[in-house]
């Protein structure tokens, strides 16, 4: 991780980190508020959507995936997403086809 200090966010990393942090806090607050609005099954969808957004922010900025010059970093991110897809997709083959539920 030490080799790409030349990337763009080196200009004002602190400012960037704090703004991401603020965005994460705002998202948390929205999650909290949204939990009290009756949306039926969409409550979970909204919460998961916000959580995904937050995870993306963390990966892109705190974990330096944005501006990553390493091909290996990209490879790892793509592989991780692919395996997450496998986990969710193949698990859904069970939940989506249970005849009794």
């Amino acid at each position: 991780m030490s080799e790409h200090s030349n990337s763009a966010h080196a200009k004002s990393p602190l400012k960037m980190y704090f703004s991401i942090w603020a965005a994460l806090l705002i998202c948390t607050y929205i999650t909290y508020k949204a939990a009290f609005i009756e949306l039926g099954s969409f409550n979970a969808a909204v919460a998961l959507g916000i959580a995904t957004l937050k995870a993306t922010l963390v990966a892109l900025f705190f974990m330096h995936v944005w501006h990553a010059s390493e091909k290996l970093t990209k490879l790892v991110v793509i592989a991780a997403l692919f395996f997450l897809l496998l986990l969710l997709g193949l698990t859904m083959t069970d939940y989506a086809t249970r005849p009794w539920s």
Binding site: F83, L86, L90, T93, D94, R98
Partner: peptide, 22 residues
């Protein structure tokens, strides 16, 4: 190896269609 895990669950009450796939 990541595509086969549910063969540990064939009698656990999972969907039979998913069991076929696994």
């Amino acid at each position: 190896g990541f595509l086969v895990w549910a063969h540990h669950m064939f009698v656990a009450g999972m969907s039979v269609y998913a069991a076929l796939v696994f």
